[in-house]
Design a protein around this nucleic acid. Structure first.
Lengths: 330, 330
DNA sequence: CTGTTAGCGCGTTCAG
DNA sequence: CTGAACGCGCTAACAG
């Protein structure tokens, strides 16, 4: 391993000068700077992040928290896409991304401890369940933290325009003549679900159809549950004319039930997804859904976090726009 | 930040003793060991990975290489699932996972340099395109490396039983009476695609139907291309009775074309996917496909790499079994 | 513009 | 069983 000592030695300089040159300080004579840079290249010198971080207290490493024991972010294609953006964006600003788990070595520890252990410069939280004490502690800590689709007053939060999304869907359904709408929400212990549900109640009220509409609690990405709930809903006396699902995967689960049982879509019943992932436009019939701006969600949360890390005091709240995708199911 | 120095100071011991106790060496008196462990806990001591790695030359960190500029692993739901397993498995053995990109800070570097910079203990390569010089250098280096679905003689490779998978599909089609089969392969610059294509040619030959069968080069997860290729294939004079796709996503793209154009499946034409991801069983009709053992693929590649890191000389080649999933499309 | 010195937090000789 | 001393590779004062 080539160190700055080696190249200092070769050039009869001190490590200090070498370090300065390598870090682009301007208090080094241009000629010696060039000599240093050159021989560094020749000798195949590479900095050692451990040594550097140890003195600078900065790791150029961002932690990514995306799953708990129950729920695995990567299995959800929507989150997988967001995570992809996060990694890309971080790389563009010179940061690496590490996944943080709830243990150091073989020992169970908190996320916060883990973050300190690895000297992470900041954390992106892309988990659904932020109620865990462990996650709460992370948020409350003095570590820079940024979250997606959450609501914590002091932290950086990047939110999709959930209210707009739901209202667009309901308005679209209304315009198409649907009045009896059932909305299967995500799990209601969750901020986004609550927000969307409230939006649904608000918009149906202002359209004067709230007495015809209803909500049922479901679970994000749980296609099996969506299948069962659809069965329940459709076997009732008073069937809805349209069903809204918590996301595309759930909608496809519902769609499966409807197709299997000979329902004509959207004639017998209309359905909507949410997220607008690729598959939503690939199934037949193509889903009407809300397309989230995955690129923007991922890049914003990352850039804002890095701004915070670098002391640029970015805005705490950001809303990312959504778009109605009209398919063949409404 | 509490350091071993702080706790040594408080207990009137030397840092050496504290270090030994903390690392579970047995050359410390049990009573003092306990005192140390206790006060360490009290004071909220946490080791510093940077300092530790600097002396031990071990980071307890595994690099994950899963994308190049063209192709993003996380966008592929199959890989997303594998990666999920990798992270879980690594955590169980006490390792963290870092994503490695092709730059350090703002400077473009090789993956190998990046790995050395971060002192990674090993690398898991889950990219399709291993032809890049950069990736080649990584494989040739003395860093422990493990790959999924690749074939490098000296490296640890975990492969899915691709030949068995293809043969199962063709045999299944044959048993159902299909003789004219077209196989849309993945991109043929890739090891897996070649392997599967060869398996297809072999099995159709031994079934004496090779003159009725054909292959077309496609691209993994490219549903749009699959859509177009399906159109081409179906518009020819001599239509196949069955089409096999490189993976489920592509198959769903093909399915879309067929459904849109009024083909009855499997009566007019049968289709098969590959991978067996969740969505393959959710679309209507349910895909006949090969289910890969994602859990095993991810955990094996991780455990084998860690064995290698820890000097346990694990076997270089591992094959993970696959399972035929008969759906409604054949 | 450059060198000397010190220290980041930890593990590991080598004595005792 | 315990301590003193050193070094991992690098950056940051402080001189000069």
């Amino acid at each position: 391993m080539v160190t700055i000592y080696d190249i200092a030695n070769k050039l009869k300089l001190s490590t200090a000068t070498v370090s300065r040159a390598l870090n682009g300080h301007d208090d080094v004579k241009t000629s010696t700077k060039n000599r240093i840079l050159e021989t560094a290249k020749e000798m195949g010198y590479l900095p050692n992040s451990m040594a550097r971080s140890l003195t600078t207290k900065k790791s150029w490493n961002i932690g990514l928290l995306f799953s708990d024991d129950q729920n695995s972010g990567f299995k959800h294609i929507f989150f997988a896409n967001v995570i992809n953006e996060i990694i890309d964006s971080a790389a563009k600003r010179g940061y690496d991304v590490s996944i943080i788990s709830g243990n150091i070595g073989m020992r169970k520890t908190s996320y916060l401890e883990h973050a300190r252990y690895r000297m992470l410069d900041g954390i992106i939280i892309a988990t659904i369940d932020t109620r865990q004490e462990d996650v709460q502690n992370l948020i409350k800590s003095d570590l820079p933290v940024a979250l997606i689709d959450q609501n914590f007053s002091e932290s950086i939060c990047v939110n999709s325009k959930n209210i707009k999304g739901i209202k667009s869907l309901v308005n679209h359904l209304y315009d198409k003549g649907y009045r009896k709408i059932t909305y299967i929400t995500g799990q209601l212990d969750n901020y986004v679900s609550k927000d969307r549900k409230k939006a649904f109640l608000d918009i149906t009220k202002s359209l004067n159809i709230s007495n015809l509409c209803s909500t049922v609690e479901g679970v994000f990405t749980d296609s099996k549950l969506a299948y069962e709930l659809t069965k329940d809903i459709m076997s009732k006396e008073n069937r809805p004319e349209a069903i809204m699902y918590p996301d595309d995967t759930a909608a496809i689960g519902g769609l499966k039930y409807l197709l299997e049982n000979g329902y004509s879509i959207p004639n017998d019943v209309a359905i909507c997804g949410y997220d607008g992932v690729e598959i939503s436009q690939l199934v037949t019939p193509r889903l009407t859904t809300i397309k989230q701006d995955i690129h923007k969600l991922g890049s914003s949360v990352t850039y804002l976090l890095i701004d915070e890390i670098e002391g640029k005091k970015p805005s705490r709240k950001t809303w990312v726009d959504v778009e109605l995708l009209v398919g063949e199911t409404t």
